[in-house]
């Protein structure tokens, strides 16, 4: 509960700071808050767009969190999700004859597998060779983006378009849309994300393997002393993290675009780090944090329409301030006027 309260306080603090920034920019902060809320939840379509942006953030938030739980920092979700999306689109482009439901199933598995492999590489390098996973995942992001761009442009190029993207996949590949949200591209990927969050929770909290994984994260020497294969656990954690990020491909390719578009992700992988941080690496917290960041991303678009001075980039300011407030726990603790040393984090 205390950690939940801390996160809540951090969000409030970040929002307050952000709103004061809009005041400096010449807007009425109360109006800005109302516009934000209306933009994110004001109509069926707006709610839909919020949920549309929430879905990939759940996947990337979980991805970062699972690695965190094993004491690893996955900065590579951006690359993993790019390859996941590319794999899903490639299956669709190469096997146009496949029917429903085999088609989306196979494409989803491809997205999962591509992400898993891309996550396992830094996991293996860390566990066996001692290469720091932060450096490796950052570098692999560049490789993944380059690789997926190459495939999209030279192997599976869409001849109909000037945009850098792959050929469209068949209709049989598309997963159903949730029609209640008007034109917003909310698909079955949203319930899938919630289901995956539940599975991750069960895995981490209710299985022996999940326990071992967390034990490695808490203290590697202690875990080793207890007979846990920390090397294996590290590789496993990064593989799972990669697979989770790869599932963004299901939401983007099978649920929305119907193809892989180069640069489709507005930094879902990096926002996922903030989501995991704010959600305290717990699946339920991550879902809530993903919703918050999804709402910010969508809501700030409305600011563009309804204010004179603020553009959608202000969402980055809000995100930054919230992240700052989350990571600057001494500040929130100071607000509780009870300084204390934090021992139960990460």
């Amino acid at each position: 509960m205390r950690r939940l309260a801390q996160s809540f306080l951090a969000v409030a603090f970040g929002l307050a700071l952000g709103l004061s920034a809009t005041w400096i920019a010449g807007e009425n902060p109360w109006e800005v808050l109302k516009i934000l809320a209306r933009g994110a939840f004001g109509s069926r379509e707006n709610i839909g767009m919020t949920l549309f942006y929430t879905t990939p953030l759940i996947f990337t938030g979980l991805s970062v969190a699972v690695a965190f739980q094993a004491g690893l920092f996955n900065v590579g979700a951006e690359g993993q999700l790019n390859l996941g999306a590319l794999a899903a689109a490639a299956i669709g482009a190469l096997l146009p004859g496949l029917g429903w439901p085999m088609a989306p199933l196979l494409a989803s598995l491809a997205a999962l597998a591509a992400g898993t492999v891309w996550g396992a590489i830094p996991g293996w390098l860390r566990a066996r060779r001692g290469s720091h996973e932060v450096i490796v995942t950052i570098m692999l992001n560049f490789v993944a983006v380059g690789l997926s761009t190459y495939v999209a442009l030279y192997v599976l190029k869409n001849p109909e378009s000037q945009n850098p993207e792959t050929r469209p996949i068949g209709l049989a590949y598309m997963i159903p849309r949730l029609g209640v949200f008007g034109d917003a591209p909310v698909s079955a990927a949203l319930p899938l994300a919630l289901l995956v969050a539940a599975i991750v929770w069960v895995f981490l909290r209710r299985t022996a393997l999940g326990y071992e994984l967390r034990a490695v994260g808490q203290s590697e020497p202690a875990a080793r002393a207890a007979g846990i294969d920390a090397t294996k656990m590290r590789i496993l954690a990064m593989a799972i993290a990669g697979g989770l990020a790869g599932l963004v491909g299901v939401a983007e390719v099978l649920g929305n675009a119907g193809k892989f578009k180069v640069e489709f992700s507005p930094q879902y992988g990096f926002i996922g780090i903030a989501v995991a941080l704010l959600g305290r690496n717990e699946p339920i917290g991550i879902v809530a944090a993903a919703l918050l960041f999804g709402a910010l991303h969508q809501g700030t678009r409305e600011l563009d329409f309804s204010t004179e001075h603020i553009t959608s980039e202000v969402s980055l300011v809000f995100q930054g301030l919230i992240i700052l407030a989350v990571s600057a726990e001494p500040v929130t603790n100071w607000f509780r006027s009870k300084p204390r040393i934090n021992t139960d984090e990460l």
Binding site: E263, R301, F305, S312, S315
Partner: peptide, 13 residues
């Protein structure tokens, strides 16, 4: 005028 933050923002805008 609005500036699109990502490709998925064109349509709703």
């Amino acid at each position: 005028y609005v500036e699109a933050a990502d490709d998925n923002a064109f349509e709703p805008s």
